[in-house]
Design a protein around this nucleic acid. Structure first.
Lengths: 143, 143
DNA sequence: ACGGTACCGGCCGCTCCTGGCGAGCTGCGA
DNA sequence: TCGCAGCTCGCCAGGAGCGGCCGGTACCGT
């Protein structure tokens, strides 16, 4: 099965719920998802399986490096476990909406093993950051 | 099952009891919890299983290192076993509240295998301490 | 053009929260 | 040693907030 691809323009309803695009619903097939913020300007949604690996890395890192505890705390305190309802919606807690500047229209973007949720304006400006040297990268991958 | 995640704003009632956030209740499913202070500014709550491992580490360390006894004593003397009541509340002894500057509003934060209880103001300032180099850490974990 | 699917808003039911009350225990005094 | 009183702990019930379900509607594909 190929990873998550594509972009979907969505709107948070007045309760702060996001309706997961249909092609991404399978992410929730094998249990709950983990929604978190690890980069300043977006939220990221991990399927249970992908999250399991991340979590192990976190615990291992916390044991081996004393400065890691603060980072782990930062991540877990900006994370929640979510389960979409029967029609594919889940609630994004208010404090996560604020953390990622989400309000009204949002952009849901597939990214292989994870799904990202962006403020549309921020997404566009971040795309441009990645523009220089793109051709070099493209060659490495596709050439 | 994924670890404990998320942040919950709670209030100690006038008896000094804390109502455990619903997503964390499962921590008490298999027996009593251990509440202790091992870092200056927060209390930490361990489920029985996680505590078992810590306890073994403590005993092993005390046997192997003569300076460990004082540390062990320090930890155990700031620890209690607690069991939530039928509606999920448990008492935080006054001397532990004082030790962690807890009063009135508190922040309950999941951290994988454990749960931390913070004075909200202290938590925010500690988050900022962990900020530098965060991108490096995030890359190691999520990259 | 018609059928099916997905979106969206509103409503209902349920769970969860909070304060109060009762019972049991402990400590002190007689 | 026994009784009383104060306190602490645990249970219970009312109320509110929220999550989940269901209907109508629009859109898309056939």
């Amino acid at each position: 099965m190929s990873g998550f691809l594509g972009r979907y323009e969505k709107r948070l309803d007045d309760k702060g719920r996001l309706s997961l695009p249909v092609p991404f619903r399978r992410a929730a097939a094998d249990g709950p998802l983990v929604l978190l913020q690890y980069q300043a300007s977006a939220l990221t949604l991990f399927p249970g399986t992908a999250w399991g690996k991340i979590q192990e890395r976190l615990m291992e890192y916390r044991r081996s490096d004393r400065s890691a505890a603060a980072y782990v705390r930062r991540i877990t305190s900006f994370a929640v476990e979510v389960t979409p309802d029967k029609v594919g919606r889940f609630l994004i807690p208010g404090w996560l909406q604020e953390a990622a500047s989400l309000e009204g229209d949002v952009l849901v973007v597939g990214s292989l093993d994870r799904i990202e949720i962006w403020n549309p304006g921020l997404f566009d400006s971040h795309l441009e950051d990645g523009a220089p040297d793109a051709s070099e990268f493209m060659h490495k991958i596709f050439g």
